[in-house]
Design a protein around this nucleic acid. Sequence first.
DNA 1: AAGCCGGGGAC
DNA 2: GTCCCAGGCTT
Length: 356
Amino acid sequence: MKPDFTRKLLQWNKDSNTRSMPWKGEKNPYRIWLSEIILQQTRVEQGLAYYQKFIETFPTIQHLADAPEKEVFKCWEGLGYYTRCKNLIATAKKVAYELNGVFPSTYESIKELKGIGPYTAAAIASFAFNEPKAVVDGNVQRVLSRYFGISTPIDTTTGKKLYQELAQALIDTDQPAAYNQAIMDFGAVICKPQSPLCAICVQNQDCEAFKHDLVKQLPVKEKTLVKSTRWLYYFIIVSDDEVYIRQRKGKDIWENLHEFVLYEAEGPVHTAFQELPFLNGFLGDIPFSIWHISKMFKQQLTHQTINGQFITVDISKPLPTGSGYFQVSKAQLSDYPFPRFINMFLEETASPARLF
DNA sequence: AAGCCGGGGAC
DNA sequence: GTCCCAGGCTT
């Protein structure tokens, strides 16, 4: 006997769900995996073009595993949460080189792979292998929180466990793929975060939040976002036709992406050249001349506000080795993945070539 | 358990 | 501006 919720959800899915996505109904685990990694904390509309590009560039997991890391990151450029890309590469190599190219086929074995947690493992296991494992993403938490009137915060250990168990109890074990797809579509199309379509919702008579006018208050989130502001001053050090860049390392934003010579200040630089001591120290006794100072750029990230300027500096002889940066010709610059913040400058500058 | 990781779209 | 998105990893 199916729960009423499940029955009505599947009925809605059959009758009214017109949501269409390229990976819907997909059975190839590589494609499912790829789409799920791209869509982690990412809207479908934003991830779609990236999915298409990845499938085109890397038709199989073997292609992905064999590709140079830089090329894969270049495909991921601009999508954010770059650890996903690093884990994507690691898992592709694992499957291609250690598992004979065969994607693991059970929830438990899939979850062992890097970058795959409970949600993604359940998605792949159900979509590709028909394993009755319920997915719990932001959509599912919202739908269940409202339908059952649950105010347990979704971002706590207790909440996560509760929603996982509830979802598992509701899944249609005869058609887990259809059920998992349906509840996420339902959350995205009907039970939306803002302005949900309660008036036309087939579940509204049974929905606790709707009955008690709690829709706007559910689900509950406990943690509040802490934001910080940073000031990044990038020196575009030009020597002949070459410019200096490096790959970002360490646990910070934009890990593995590239950048110019960075001076990070504690706060806004008030005078025009408060950052000059850094430049003098960095260049040592190499003569330089400043060619251009950009406007102040600003970018709002989820948890940080980035401010910064780009200062183009011409030097007469190359940097000594050991600076931590390497030379790239301006023509090769676009081969390297950069954060959006830097691309904002590169794209907006009317004639970037003039700066180099 | 808490903190951190991007970028974009809707409001 | 705020919220949140087909979350997961590190500490």
